[in-house]
Simulated scan of single mutants.
Amino acid sequence: MTGSRPTPYAVSLALRQFDEGVWKKAVAGMAGRAQYAAELLAGTMPQDIDAVFRAAGVSLFPRSREELVTNCTCPDWGDPCKHVAATHYVLGEALDRDPFLLFELRGWTKARVLDALRAARGGEPRTAVKRKRAASADGEVAPVPRGVKPGKLTRADYDLPRKPLPAMGFSFDAPSVHGAVLRQLGSPASWGVKDTPGDMLSSQVQAAAEGARRIALRETDSRDEVPAARKPRR
């Protein structure tokens, strides 16, 4: 007795693709956010990537069932049928493995988006870089990239600033209230003493501040002087 083979059914899935104008606006939005550009160029999909598409008047993700059109050749009356439901699960797993697949479903591949993003941020598309590397490997001389030509620099001028440093001013006036920072910080959650850190450390902080002020102003104090060594008695 031979078993019958299941009838194969064809499942199709369609998602509306964005036009060139929408993609250019979305890429400009990605390039305008340094964090988005850094994550995308590193191969990571930003969590709030749909924000740049919403700013372009669309949504990267389907907003309703009507936007994700599915069809199956099976005779089941359910909508969606079990074959379409299984396709949704497979698509979800594929997007988990490679979120950039959603870009391709919307009309642009990952490579095209990243090349456009590099160009928008003033870089060179990776495809152009590959062409130049291939030309160099074939023996052709690669063009010299444009850059900034540094001026002559001697060893004596190495440590000199390129332009005058901004004026700096310091004030060593005694504070009107000592230990203000300790009072603002308050007591930590694990503090179990009745007195606050400000009450316990205020005198030490004040003494340290006064000592630092005397050192900065080169003032002397009897407490800072080291007593002279006494001569031994004969």
Rank of each mutant, 00 (worst) to 15 (best):
K149G: 00
V193H: 14
L105N: 10
A31Q: 03
T127I: 03
F100M: 11
K110W: 12
L217Y: 02
Q17H: 01
D195N: 14
E219P: 00
Q206F: 00
M45I: 06
P161S: 02
Y36S: 02
E39C: 04
V193I: 09
R218G: 11
S171K: 06
A209K: 02
I49P: 00
V22W: 02
E219M: 08
Q184H: 10
R218Y: 01
A228P: 01
S222M: 13
R33S: 11
D115W: 04
E67A: 02
R234S: 14
R5T: 09
W108K: 12
R223S: 13
P62N: 03
D76I: 04
R131S: 07
A85Y: 10
S187W: 02
A116Q: 01
P188T: 03
L60R: 06
L101T: 11
F172R: 01
S202E: 15
G186S: 08
A134P: 00
R54I: 04
L185S: 09
R97A: 15
E124R: 04
T44P: 05
D98G: 14
A174K: 08
R146T: 04
L101Q: 09
M1I: 14
A134S: 12
R16Q: 05
K231F: 05
M30T: 02
P75E: 11
V22A: 10
L160P: 08
A55E: 15
R223N: 13
R183G: 10
T44Y: 07
Y89V: 15
L160S: 04
T196K: 15
R33V: 05
H178K: 03
R112Q: 15
V90C: 10
E67C: 06
L153Y: 00
W191G: 01
A174V: 08
F100S: 12
H88K: 11
S171L: 06
K130Y: 07
R121I: 07
Q17D: 04
R118M: 09
A28K: 15
V144L: 08
A111V: 04
A156G: 03
G139S: 03
T196A: 12
L91Y: 05
M30D: 00
A111S: 09
F172T: 11
V90A: 13
A229T: 07
